[in-house]
């Protein structure tokens, strides 16, 4: 009797009717617990099945948010910091960016109808070179991140398969709007464009390649891209970090 339950003490103290009521209440209690457990499992199962049919799990908003958080995690991780970890860090960043960003998709948008002038092999090379070029010029910007606040805003639906996730970055005391455009490719959301302060990266390059491809053959353009990538990095101290 030393180890009797709380409930038993309570009942016994109050009325002599004791045992019968005790058992009845125990039953109610058990019923409640079983009922609620049942409810919980049902809900969890229902929730999961929704997830499986593409409900919260492949939410583009979450895709962007997770990717950004992961990238920030790498940038702030001491194991990846400093000049000596440069290779390791860039490899990791590359991996993360390639997971969310589809450069083939970006390249399709950049080339537009000019894509028809490219053989599949040339197009593949184009998209690889384009990704490398973006990496070369923007990686330092990304690496200069030092805890700037990122505000997640709205999600705009363009269509069933295209969305824009709006964010703002607090940079030098000013909010810079950065929008990520994603497309659903084979059930998976991938990024294809970034819009910074109203300027779409894809549209900007598109205007340049339109001009280039009007005068030059795809092979010549690829040549130019290769040269640009092989140019030595400009060690100019005026990168965004110090500004």
């Amino acid at each position: 009797m030393e180890r009797c339950s709380y409930m038993e003490i309570a009942t016994r103290d109050i009325s002599g009717a004791g045992k019968v009521k005790n058992i009845q209440q125990k039953r109610y209690c058990l019923l409640c617990v079983v009922l609620s457990l049942f409810l919980i499992t049902t809900l969890v199962l229902v929730g999961n099945s929704f997830g499986a049919t593409g409900f919260p799990q492949d939410d583009p908003y979450k895709v962007v948010k997770d990717a950004i958080n992961e990238i920030i995690g790498v940038l702030q991780n001491p194991a990846y910091k400093g000049e000596c970890n440069k290779e390791k860090r860039r490899a990791k960043l590359r991996e993360l960016v390639y997971q969310i960003f589809d450069f083939q998709e970006t390249s399709k948008w950049v080339l537009g109808r000019h894509r028809r002038q490219f053989t599949p092999k040339q197009f593949k090379e184009f998209s690889d070179l384009f990704a490398k070029l973006l990496e070369k010029t923007y990686i330092k910007k990304v690496e200069s991140y030092s805890g700037q606040k990122i505000i997640f805003g709205r999600e705009i639906k363009f269509s069933r398969n295209k969305v824009e996730i709006r964010t703002k970055v607090l940079y030098n005391g000013q909010e810079v709007p950065i929008y990520y455009r994603l497309i659903r490719k084979h059930g998976k959301w991938v990024g294809y464009d970034v819009v910074i302060d109203g300027v779409s990266l894809v549209k900007n390059y598109r205007s340049q390649f339109n001009e280039l491809l009007r005068k030059k053959s795809p092979e010549k353009v690829l040549e130019e891209m290769r040269n640009k990538i092989n140019q030595p990095e400009k060690g100019d101290g005026s990168s965004a970090a110090g500004a």
Partner: peptide, 12 residues
Amino acid sequence: LGEYETLKESSF
């Protein structure tokens, strides 16, 4: 500083 430089470097 650096913004125009990046735009220039990254463009054809």
